Computed example of a mutant assay.
Amino acid sequence: MKERYYLAREDILPEAILKTLHVKELLAGGQAKTVNEAVAIAGISRSAFYKYKDGIHQVNQLDRERLVTLSLLLEHRAGVLFKVLGLIAESGGNVLTINQSIPLQGTANVVLSVETSRLHDELSGLTAALESVAGVSRVVVIGQG
């Protein structure tokens, strides 16, 4: 069954949903260190929190959670990775993780996790721009989420 989503005004949401959001805000903001502490502050049971936590998100939070994993084959030359990272930043992407293999036969595989909610262009535009960087042999999107 396909998931369906709705946008609803805060004032019509049930109290348990609002308290679940409050617990998530307490944890994200560091006002509570554990779920036990946060649910006590918010006045909701742990079971209610766990029931709703994965099904309710603030709209702006969903926008920030668009991730893509890129695999790039780079020539082993000074500055190539620097240019790639700079291009991603200039495009509005935010690099979250970098994993690079040891260069073999003059090339290295680099896997990047990039948060893409603020890209100035479509992902295909970013990958095309990355492919045009001198020293980049290949760019493949290996995951989106």
Results as ranks from 00 to 15, higher is better:
R118S: 14
F49Q: 03
V141I: 15
G125E: 05
L96R: 13
L13C: 11
E3K: 14
G79F: 08
S117G: 15
G30V: 09
F82C: 02
G29V: 01
S137V: 15
N36P: 00
I12K: 09
V84N: 06
H57D: 05
Q105M: 10
G43R: 11
D121T: 13
G43K: 10
L119W: 04
A38S: 09
Y5W: 12
V111E: 09
L74S: 06
E15I: 12
R66V: 13
F82R: 12
K53Q: 11
L119C: 06
K33A: 15
V111K: 04
G55K: 15
G125N: 14
V84Y: 04
A38Q: 05
L119N: 04
V80N: 03
A40F: 01
L73T: 13
S45H: 04
S71E: 13
E65Q: 14
F82A: 13
T97G: 02
L70S: 01
T127L: 11
L104G: 01
L123M: 12
I41W: 03
F82S: 14
S101I: 01
G79A: 10
N36F: 00
A40I: 00
A42W: 01
K2Q: 09
K33S: 15
V23R: 00
A89D: 13
G125W: 00
L18T: 02
E90H: 08
L104M: 15
A40G: 08
Y50M: 09
R9I: 00
A16W: 02
H76Q: 12
Q105W: 07
P103T: 10
K51F: 07
L74H: 02
A89L: 04
L130V: 10
S45A: 04
A129M: 09
Y52L: 13
Y5I: 02
V23C: 09
V111M: 14
R64D: 07
L21S: 09
F82V: 05
G106P: 09
F49M: 06
K83G: 01
S71G: 11
T69D: 04
T97C: 05
L81M: 14
R77N: 11
A38P: 06
G135N: 05
H120K: 15
